[in-house]
Nucleic acid binder design. Structure first.
Lengths: 110, 110
DNA sequence: CATATCAATCGCAATATTACGATGGATAAA
DNA sequence: TTTATCCATCGTAATATTGCGATTGATATG
């Protein structure tokens, strides 16, 4: 085991869980926050900003790139990253839709 | 390693990542969705609804209970779970605040 | 009391994640 | 061309997560 049984859940559930997982690490939160703040791109700077090794940052960047939350462009010898607006907006909407499903209940059931 | 270096991130970043992690599994998404739909509580039903063993469901319920997203009440020999409205709302707001930080950029930087 | 039912917990196996040093490939600069 | 810089990837170690069978504790019911 250690393997999620994705086949017993709906695509939507698997996708939403995957989206949460992409941001379920403080380094990836920090990276996206930094990219949001410096709307212009960056990269090696992230290694200095956060206190993680270059290989580790690269790995987190890859995960964020894989889900499409960020995109990177080679600029000479360095790589410039920035938020992918489209995916970001999709995440925002999907998360909002998830949380909005709950409607206040009067009676205290538990 | 395998251990997240929480100490190099801010409390907010660690907390937000933790919130994401709580929902970063399809079973926990499915459980919350089911509790949202049947606003009244449930429990052993979840074992039938999702196709996971009782021990596994119990473990996921515990995680959701730990972060406060759900709460449980003993009712005779069974346990009744439901959404914790307060925490749910807090999650909704926190996630919304995170995504709202990004403002559309005109120039294509990447 | 004896028995049945429900759910939490323990213990284990399998897999995933996190982190990093080392290496390598690409580009810029000398 | 040689050298330096930047970053992706590989390989590895440590830890975390997922899933479940088995057990246990609590509460009902006969």
């Amino acid at each position: 085991m250690g393997l999620t049984k994705s086949e017993i859940f709906t695509d939507k559930q698997n996708r939403l869980a995957g989206m949460m997982k992409a941001l379920a690490h403080p380094a990836r939160i920090a990276i996206t926050q930094h990219l949001v703040k410096q709307q212009a791109c960056i990269c090696g700077d992230l290694v200095e900003e956060l206190g993680l090794a270059q290989a580790t940052i690269s790995q987190h960047l890859k995960e964020l790139k894989t889900v499409g939350l960020i995109q990177g462009n080679v600029e000479g010898t360095s790589v410039c990253y920035c938020i992918n607006e489209k995916t970001w907006e999709e995440y925002r909407k999907t998360f909002e839709a998830f949380f909005i499903t709950y409607q206040r209940v009067d009676k205290d059931c538990c």
